[in-house]
Design a protein around this nucleic acid. Structure first.
Length: 432
RNA sequence: UCCACCGUAGCUCAAUGGUAGAGCGCCCGGCUGUUAACCGGGUGGUUGGGGGUUCGAGUCCCUCCGGUGGAGCCA
């Protein structure tokens, strides 16, 4: 008998097949019983009506506990009463294992603490199934975007000898007798080196921030996609970001809209996402926030509430550009017309989802970069190889980092990034 | 690190300082198409730990532990 996956079931209507999976739900009356099965690719129901010939099977089915692993055999039947339109008319069932005790996550309300403690089991639930499938499609679309445009994947290291941009907030560990090394907060400096070798480069991997942040937008370990392009300037950079985000959203709508609908996402909001995105300068943002009554002055960085207030003004992601240079990282290129601001931008997702991209044109002039490193009181010796890049054929270049979980969270309409990654690492939460 | 809130049955939550309860789950029975099935019966407690106030504490106070949300910082 042919083993088929639930996602392919429609192609097997009328045929006798085998499904290998788990019992998701069970309902039974005196004469008819339903088993809702899942197999990792989807959910479907199996049905059995009691007859003179199948009493033994019927009794086994109506007593099966949820999360029993089973191999179910039967005929695929199209039926409008079945969720999904197809069901399996059972004629045989092999139990691989029955749970040794009742599965803890049942059809009822659970608090987040309980669910997080049971994350290894929680991911079997329907909502998590759909979210993790969307995450998979988001990452697939990101890779596709770059690959179609001739970018080269450059995997940047997790262990780094020198600190990235800021000295605090890094995880420090012992590296044999070499001394201290740090877990990467960003691969940017390496991508800057790589773009001088390969032109257009990107990475996609985990990054680590030792920040004691406890908010719906923060993870300690999160996945970031970064891109860096030689000869790209500020405007080229923004255009690339708009195209990336629009591409990802359109691919999700194309391939994963059923998942989004299952978790209650309003697709109309995503269908509006196409370039160009609205743009405001930092100056305009500050004026707007002051009018809204925020106690913020020119030179201050924006917090989550400020970003949310701005994002709610637009239906698409909004680009905020040209921040004061002292509020941003040392390596950002000054605006030639206004040296007090830098050629950078953030991209703020709609509906209050916050910053999903941080971007800038990088300083390519050796002397200016040295001056900035000194101005920010950073140890010059840590940046020896980074400065080298400015000694040999330096060119303008630009890049950005996209937060994968925040993007997934926005696309899915989640209320916390912890559901956008299979096993979130959060403050004081490392299990499972 | 700081601020706020929370911790009671397996889970989600009630309980004016005065006999610890409900719904769901689970177990048993019933039900011929269920969609969070339904109906009947049963099961269920060191009220997070310690100390204190009080005739009496789930409730008030102190302290510790754990959790959630937020701030700062960022993707």
């Amino acid at each position: 008998m042919e083993w088929v996956y639930i996602e392919d079931i429609a192609r097997h209507a009328g045929k006798e097949v085998e499904i290998k999976g788990w019992v998701w739900r069970r309902r039974a009356s005196g004469r008819i019983a339903f088993l809702h099965l899942r197999d990792g690719t989807g959910f479907m129901q199996a049905v059995i009506e009691k007859t003179n010939d199948n009493e033994e099977l019927f009794e086994r089915v109506r007593k099966l506990d949820i999360e029993s692993s089973v191999v179910a055999r039967g005929t695929v039947r199209e039926d409008p009463r079945a969720p999904g339109g197809y069901e399996l008319v059972l004629n045989d069932l092999v139990v691989v294992q029955e749970p040794v005790e009742p599965f803890p996550i049942r059809k009822k309300d659970h608090g987040i603490d309980f669910l997080m403690d049971h994350r290894h089991l929680w991911i079997r639930s329907k909502r998590q199934f759909h979210i993790l499938r969307v995450r998979h499609e988001v990452i697939r679309a990101i890779r596709e975007f770059y690959n179609e445009r001739g970018f080269v994947l450059v995997d940047t290291p997790i262990f780094t000898g020198s600190v990235g941009e800021s000295a605090g907030n890094t995880f420090e560990l012992d590296y044999f007798d070499y001394g201290k090394v740090y877990l990467a907060q960003t691969g940017q400096l390496y991508l800057e080196a790589a773009c001088m070798a390969l032109g257009k480069v990107y990475n996609l991997g985990p990054t680590f921030r030792a920040e004691k942040s406890k908010t719906r937008r923060h993870l300690i370990e999160f996945w970031m996609n970064e891109a860096e392009v030689a000869y790209y300037e500020h405007e080229d950079n923004i255009r690339l970001q708009e195209e990336l985000v629009s591409f990802v959203v359109s691919k999700i709508l194309e391939r994963a809209s059923t998942h989004l609908l299952e978790i209650g996402r309003d697709l109309k909001k995503l269908e509006k996402i196409e370039p160009p995105f609205p743009r405001i300068t930092y100056d305009e943002a500050i004026d707007f926030l002051k009018k809204k009554g925020f106690g913020i002055d020119w030179g201050d960085d924006m917090g989550g509430d400020e970003e949310t207030a701005i994002s709610l003004e637009f239906e698409k992601p909004v680009i905020i550009e040209r921040y004061p240079r002292m509020a941003k990282a040392f390596y950002m290129q000054p605006d030639p017309d206004r040296p007090e601001v830098v050629l950078c931008n953030d991209m703020i997702a709609p509906e209050g989802y916050g910053e999903i991209i941080g971007a800038s044109q990088r300083i390519h002039d050796y002397d200016l970069l040295v001056e900035r490193i000194r101005e920010f009181n950073l140890p010059l010796e840590n940046y020896d190889w980074y400065l080298d890049l400015r000694k040999y054929g330096t060119v303008p270049h630009s890049g950005f980092g996209l937060g994968v979980e925040r993007t997934v969270s926005w696309i899915c309409g989640l209320d916390h990034v912890r559901e956008a990654i299979p096993f979130p690492r959060m403050l004081y939460r490392l299990k499972p």
